[in-house]
Computed example of a mutant assay.
Amino acid sequence: MTGPAGFAVIAGASLLFLVVLQTVALAVGHRIGRYNVVDVGWGLGFVGVAWLALVLGDGDATRRWLLAALVSIWGLRLSLHMFVKSRGHGEDPRYVEMLARYEGPPVRVAATRVFATQGAAQWFVSLPIQLSAVASATTGAACVALVAGIAVWLVGFGFEAIGDAQLRRFKADPANKGRIMDRGLWAWTRHPNYFGDACVWWGLWLIAASAWPGVLTALSPVAMTYFLVVATGARLLEQSMGRRPGYAEYQRRTSFFVPRPPRPKGSALRS
């Protein structure tokens, strides 16, 4: 099915899949006593939607396979990273604070404030992938957008994967206990992983926008960037990191989000 009917099938199947995924993740989180399992399901949800779009869509096959591959590489790496990061640790401080902020049983608060919200965000952010699956082939000058999208995705994936690896190695060294990570990509931006994630989704949107009507889904990467910067990402993390010794100095000399050359120690930098 092409056009609106085909998109409605993909959108409905994607929504159903995400509801099931978040329900299962909530049950697992309730059983083990920590709801940060939702972070593991973040990448997996997008992978599932991308493969549903690939199988159910009848738009340009090359672009469907390309998007499925790029989303799978990104999503599986991220989910594995979050699983390893959270394994053997307690609840994420963000969720501890959130559960304490609202009245009611923790499982109900988690269901409405964490898991349902994440599922809705996954569905909305993945709209470029869903809509692209029923669009015609990319032709002519629009191929520039497709190539640019791949390039932006590569930059973003590199920032995210390399940034995570650098931080993991830094934390694994006992000599760095209590110190602020300010090396490698972390000297250029205080949040290379979040910046990379934003680039990944702008790249995916450019690929989808290379064929009408994918360009209409621009609010999806805008929403993802908002989540990464304001709602659940960098700004929220800085609230807790700001209390650590040395972090204020790190803030003064290192860009908040978009990478810039590091400033010398003791210099000021506006975020």
Rank of each mutant, 00 (worst) to 15 (best):
A175W: 08
G33R: 11
L67G: 02
A111T: 09
T138P: 12
L54M: 10
R260G: 03
V134A: 04
I162R: 07
G242M: 08
A25M: 12
M82N: 10
S14G: 14
R94Q: 10
W123F: 12
G41F: 15
V109S: 02
S271T: 01
G233L: 07
L127T: 11
L131E: 03
G104A: 10
L44E: 06
S136D: 15
K177D: 12
V55P: 04
E91W: 08
V125L: 08
G12T: 11
L219G: 14
D164E: 08
M1R: 12
I180Q: 01
F124Q: 08
L26R: 04
F159S: 00
T2S: 13
W186Y: 09
A151D: 05
V71L: 01
D92H: 09
A231D: 12
G45C: 04
P262R: 10
R64V: 06
P128H: 09
T139H: 10
A135P: 03
A198W: 01
L67F: 01
G178I: 12
C143D: 10
G266L: 00
G6I: 02
G156L: 02
A68Q: 05
L228C: 08
T138Q: 06
L16G: 12
G203P: 11
Y95F: 15
W201L: 05
S240I: 10
A223D: 02
W51N: 02
G242V: 05
V96W: 02
F46T: 06
A161Q: 11
G43Q: 07
V229S: 05
V222P: 11
R101H: 14
H89R: 15
F256H: 01
V155M: 06
A116K: 09
V20S: 06
A142S: 15
W51V: 04
P262N: 07
G140F: 10
V47R: 06
V230R: 11
T232C: 08
M224L: 15
A120V: 13
W212K: 08
A120W: 12
V107R: 14
L146T: 10
R34S: 04
G163V: 00
R64E: 07
L219R: 07
I32G: 02
L66A: 14
P245T: 04
Q239H: 09
P192L: 02
R244E: 12
Q166S: 10
A141R: 14
D39V: 04
G33A: 08
H191I: 00
A148K: 05
G88F: 10
A116R: 14
L131G: 13
L16S: 11
P4T: 00
Y247S: 03
R31Y: 14
G12Y: 09
I10L: 10
G163I: 00
F124M: 13
V200L: 11
K265E: 12
A211V: 08
V215I: 15
S255M: 01
D164Q: 05
A121V: 15
G33K: 13
D58Y: 13
L99V: 05
F257S: 00
A198D: 01
P262G: 03
W201Y: 11
L154S: 11
